[in-house]
Amino acid sequence: MEVKRREFIRQLCFACGSISLIPACTSEISTWRFLTADEAKLIEAITEQIIPADQDAGATDARVVNFFDRQLIGYYTRHQETYRKGLQNIESSSLKIFHKNFVNLDWDQQTEFLETMETGELPEAEWEGNEQRSFFRMLLDHSMQAFYGSPRHGGNCGYVSYKMLKIDYPHVIGQNRYPSENGNTNLKAS
């Protein structure tokens, strides 16, 4: 069985031509594509709140911020302005309430801040031209895409979320139930 499986992986690699077992996310980033260094730090802090590390990897380990940076000049180019503004709104709200940048707040202060933002209760004056609840929902949704999506989009580095969920990757492992000689699907093989 083991031999067969390896053979199959080999064939699959041939079939797909360019399957690379080293996910793109591990290459070091020296400069950001869209984000400024401060924005990147801010997103990292926010997304770590959304998906914190515990016994399993969190957003920072999964390089979730890399997904944001990549997609903001890719599929999410249309959200550039929302991010640029929204991140500023977060900073100014944080300064107003705590007299500190968001990244310098305690963990619990950050949590409380985001919970307040989620329900739209941060001071409205800091949110002119942007809607805090919808920006929160966008950050949340994009974090989930980054953490659980394919590493080819910049996040989920090393398939850490798949490891957490205990689902096999590369996917081929789930395919041990491979058609047997007579062409029938062998369901018992696992």
Binding site: I50, P52, L114, M164, I167
Partner: peptide, 16 residues
């Protein structure tokens, strides 16, 4: 809850 440790715990515990 949609995020934070509760989110993670839910995913981990209930995915299967």
């Amino acid at each position: 809850k949609q995020w934070g440790l509760e989110h993670k715990e839910f995913q981990r515990k209930n995915y299967k």
